[in-house]
Design a binder for these strands. Structure first.
Length: 193
DNA sequence: ACATCGATCTACT
DNA sequence: GTAGATCGATGTA
């Protein structure tokens, strides 16, 4: 899969593109990790921040695909999302967990914890390990020519994709939508089992 | 202006 | 397994 393939998928359909992010490499400075857990959010779904309202916070979600949308939650945590769908149609993919590959010492320094399994096993943890904040909103994650935060498309799709209900969504119709995608061969690195 | 609510994490039992 | 922390964005007035 090329960068172009992944970008095209992001523009086309957020639910189809989300599992294609599994196995992608998130790069920043010396740090590299393999994405193992993601969730899709679409504008017709109440759990989506861009549901029925366009606000300053979510403005970037209405732009082109492949751009970073970072928001602050619970007064404590930053969350990294990849914008999907064409301009005017808001959608995003939350990066929830990843397996550390390189630059573990930088991640440990940023996180203040040592255990490898605890470095990136949750959306807030991942953002903290990578030093991701609201200032990273707007970064073009698919542009590998820029030196900062970016994504490398996986060589080939993940063989064993496990789907399920998204985490932290209230019970109801939209809770049951299977828009959480996990790399079934990397279960040990996800946020919850 | 002010009250409410989280796409969570950590520490502690 | 679960309570508590913590604060920006949003909704209502």
């Amino acid at each position: 899969m090329t960068q172009g393939d992944l970008l095209a998928a992001l523009r086309d359909d957020v639910v189809a593109a989300a599992p294609m992010l599994l196995g992608a490499i998130l790069v920043r400075g010396p740090m590299r990790c393999k994405i193992v857990e993601v969730e899709a959010y679409r504008s017709d779904d109440p759990a989506c921040h861009a549901y029925q309202r366009r606000t300053p916070r979510t403005e970037v979600m209405y732009g082109p695909p492949g751009i970073a949308y970072v928001y602050f939650n619970y007064g404590v945590h930053w969350m990294l999302n990849v914008v999907a769908h064409p301009p005017g149609d808001a959608a995003a993919i939350l990066i929830r967990a990843a397996q550390p590959l390189e630059g573990l010492e930088s991640m440990r320094a940023n996180r203040g914890v040592f255990k490898e399994r605890d470095l990136l096993s949750g959306p807030g943890k991942l953002a903290k390990a990578y030093g991701i904040t609201g200032e990273d909103t707007g970064t073009n994650l698919m542009d590998i020519s820029q030196d900062g935060l970016h994504l490398l498309a996986p060589g080939s799709p993940i063989a064993n994709v496990v789907t399920g209900a998204r985490i932290g969504i209230a019970e109801g119709k939209w809770h049951d939508v299977p828009w959480r995608f996990v790399d079934g061969d990397a279960i040990g690195w996800v946020s919850r089992r």
